[in-house]
């Protein structure tokens, strides 16, 4: 336990306008403000932005649907597939990315590495539909 001794602080003596020196120093430094959107914004290597899917790698296993905390993903029937003698329904995910919280849980759990988070973050749009990602449906398998 360490006391921060207030009486020691008050011994140092008070002054009015103690910030003046630092103020003038700051005035001649580069401002911290980033000129976004007039200049590019930098994001970290690991930044979690918009989700992207590689339709070729996706097998339609449905794990991502089960783990997504924001109910972004729905599996859609796309047809049937013959395995041996049986006919199996094939499914592919669609993503309503307007509710995606970019947590990356689906990316972690997709065993086929079909998903990844890009660095794109400018997702504001007037048309919600433009954020529905159904690339995976269109690939014929």
């Amino acid at each position: 336990m360490v006391e921060n001794d207030a009486s020691e602080d008050s011994k140092k003596g008070m002054k009015v306008g103690g910030a003046l020196g630092e103020m003038f120093r700051t005035a001649f430094q580069r401002p911290i403000t980033k000129k976004y959107p007039f200049g590019a914004a930098q994001v970290a290597e690991r930044f979690r932005g918009k989700l992207d899917i590689d339709p070729v790698k996706c097998t339609g296993c449905g794990v991502c649907e089960a783990v997504c905390p924001a109910s972004v993903i729905q599996m859609v029937h796309t047809g049937t597939r013959k395995v041996g003698t049986r006919e199996i329904e094939t499914k592919r995910p669609t993503f309503d990315l307007y509710t995606c919280i970019s947590c990356g849980q689906c990316v972690d759990d997709c065993r086929f590495e079909a998903l990844r988070l890009t660095h794109e973050f400018e997702l504001a749009t007037v048309d919600k539909k433009s954020l529905v990602m159904d690339k995976a449906l269109k690939v014929v398998n």
């Binding site: 140092k12 003596g13 008070m14 002054k15 009015v16 306008g17 103690g18 910030a19 630092e22």
Partner: peptide, 14 residues
């Protein structure tokens, strides 16, 4: 450290 010094010495704030 600078801010700690400033907040304990700038009179109007104290």
């Amino acid at each position: 450290r600078y801010y700690r010094d400033l907040v304990s010495r700038e009179e109007t704030l104290v």
